[in-house]
Write a protein that binds this DNA or RNA. Structure first.
Lengths: 171, 171, 171, 171
DNA sequence: AATGAATGAGAATTCATTCAT
DNA sequence: CATGAATGAATTCTCATTCAT
């Protein structure tokens, strides 16, 4: 999975062959098929694995309610996770925009996004925003945009400042 | 090019075959190769063509300076262009995250982004923002995020409200 | 025909496309097909045309008998013809060894070789050689070998000396 | 390689398809590509392999000097090799005259020809010939011509007599 | 648990040839 | 006489997947 993630992020899913993955991992092609029934299954496993990591820190006390501190914590954690596994999140965005691949992991994506969306809407409602659903969608868009631009050029995108600005805007 | 754009956006570049494109366009495979020397060349042509359309709307005065009204106009035009050619911009984002494809059109992307970046920085400088470069990067991130989320689900994303909010934030 | 000959000799028959020939000749592909019904027909025409040039000087008085002077004349003329149209004879040998192409012009080749063979055998018989048929075959082999080596590197192969040596050997 | 050699010699390199080769060899197309990265690579392997076999018979002492007996031995061996692998040598001559193919194996051909040329020149020098370099070129031409004519019609060309005549001429 | 030779469906690409104009 | 857009069969090559060992 590590080899595959690395190569998928570097060359793209379609340009990465099973051969390349097996070679990088130092195993045979056949062995890969002992663990994953197909290339698709491998991709799916990688993505689900990454999503699970991500979900652990949303709403940590699981009460479905986000305090201002928790939102601040969320922003910080969100980008810490991305910073710690750039390759995975590059792959994430790459997959998001290849419709034929997205289909494979659509369910898993929804399992992540739906609760996130619900919690944020609660937050905006509680804090007196006029149009909580819109605010949620706008915030998610900003979060995506920052991720996208950070991943595109991690060396030069001022992630820390962007997170601070986010926190100022929303708390 | 229309057929290819449609199919690329729908199935992804790699899952779309020359056969499918030719069939959709009502021509033979061979004829495609009279006009484009390869599938890559076709993809490149489509993207460059779309970028050129887009560039017409940035800084219409071509004086390199953006007034508040022009920024407002820019936001509006920006999303009008996207709204009018959803397929193309889906493809655009899809390509942004497939490294092996991005390489093909990297030069053309830069020709679009660099002047856009310069003009925005001028704007923030003139209007007294403390860190114009950072503000530019942050704004571009937001613009990308909105585009991304709109394209993902054009029916439900509140593009008009988002543009209004943007205008409020920046003018 | 000139363009085709040049390109056939340079790139080989199979690697030369109708497009290349038409372009070199400054005409359209279609026009080529007004004059030659196919690429094969064009090749055949070129070869037959070259063979005819060659046949003109064998046994010029057409009495079927070769005097010593005529043999000397034949050797000299033989290589003069080759020297004057290197490209054609390169093509000749190239075709000789591509079985699928040779079939096309086999008849024409035979029309050249059979009378040449007959006349030489007469010559050896008249001059008291023990095994005229063998001598003919041996001489033809030498002639071929010299042609082959001259065509391979016209700048460095000592054609004149070789012809002199031939004349010494056989007259 | 055996299947390919057979088919190349019979139909020519360009008219032989990978399909035909795989079918003749009783394997799948894909397997061919496990062993040879392309059709060109396969052709190259065949030719190099044949040349290596041939080189074993030149100057067996490897002292760079040819005695009269060794020259006699060389003539005999030379044609024994050709007789034993007619197909290969047909291919050899076919390739010699297809410029686009010759390029592929030019280096290997030179590795064969250059030492052969050197040894023969030594021989003529030692035996008092006036112009050793010319004699070498002439002899090589004769050898080529005999090979060419023998391969063209192995049934009827009197190879044994030709070799005897050669030996008489040169020792 | 591990291998890698073998498969074959499917993809991109080429190019001689046709034909309406 | 001349064009060149259009065709599509044929070809090379790729690569996920299988399976005997």
């Amino acid at each position: 999975m590590e080899s595959a993630l690395k190569l998928f992020a570097k060359h793209g899913v379609y340009s990465t062959t099973i051969n390349m993955i097996a070679q990088d991992a130092g195993i045979s092609k056949g062995l890969m098929y002992n663990y994953f029934s197909s290339k698709e299954e491998l991709l799916k496993s990688i993505i689900v694995h990454g999503l699970n990591e991500f979900m652990q820190f949303i709403d940590p006390d699981e009460d479905g309610i986000l305090t201002k501190d928790e939102l601040k914590y969320f922003f910080n954690q969100n980008y810490k996770v991305i910073q710690n596994n750039i390759q995975h999140w590059k792959l994430y965005f790459s997959v998001m925009y290849q419709p034929q691949i997205l289909k494979l992991v659509h369910k898993e994506f929804m399992q992540l996004l739906v609760p996130m969306y619900r919690i944020m809407t609660n937050y905006f409602t509680k804090n007196g925003y006029k149009n909580p659903k819109f605010e949620t969608k706008f915030l998610i868009a900003i979060l995506d945009g920052i991720s996208l631009n950070y991943l595109n050029d991690p060396e030069h995108f001022p992630l820390d400042k962007a997170v601070k600005k986010l926190i100022n805007m929303y708390t």
